[in-house]
Computed example of a mutant assay.
Amino acid sequence: MNGLKYLLDTNFIIGLLKGDEASVAIASGINLAICSYSAITRMELLSYPDLTEVESLVINRLLARMNYIAISPEIEDLTIVFRQQHKVKLPDAIIAATAKAQKIGLLTFDKKLAAKL
Rank of each mutant, 00 (worst) to 15 (best):
A101S: 15
N31F: 11
G105Q: 14
G29M: 06
S28V: 02
Q102W: 04
R83W: 04
I94G: 00
R65W: 05
A64F: 07
H86C: 10
I104D: 00
L78E: 10
K103A: 13
K18F: 14
P73Q: 11
N67G: 05
K111D: 13
I26F: 05
A96E: 01
L90I: 14
L106I: 05
G105M: 11
N67H: 15
I104E: 00
L107E: 00
N2Q: 14
F12M: 12
D9V: 02
S23I: 02
I30V: 14
R65Y: 07
V24K: 10
A25T: 09
I26W: 02
C35G: 01
E21H: 06
R61A: 13
I59A: 03
E21Q: 09
N31W: 09
N11V: 14
G105P: 03
D50A: 13
I75P: 00
Q85R: 15
Y68D: 09
L107P: 00
S56M: 09
L90P: 04
S38Y: 00
S47R: 05
Y37N: 03
V24G: 04
L8E: 00
L7V: 04
N31K: 14
E74R: 12
D20R: 10
L46C: 08
L8S: 00
A39T: 10
L8V: 02
I94P: 01
G105N: 12
D92W: 03
G29C: 06
L4T: 01
L16D: 03
I71C: 05
G15S: 02
A115W: 08
T52F: 06
L62I: 08
T41W: 03
F12S: 02
A25Q: 08
L62N: 06
K116R: 14
S72Q: 08
K112I: 11
N31Y: 11
K89M: 12
N11E: 08
L46I: 13
N60C: 09
D110V: 09
L17P: 03
K18W: 12
M43V: 15
L57D: 13
P73W: 07
K5N: 11
A101V: 05
I26L: 09
H86I: 09
T52W: 07
Q84D: 12
L7E: 01
L57I: 09
I80N: 10
D110H: 11
Y37C: 03
A115N: 12
P73S: 12
S28G: 05
K87P: 04
A97G: 00
A27G: 01
E21M: 06
K18Q: 15
I59F: 05
M66F: 04
M66H: 01
Q85W: 12
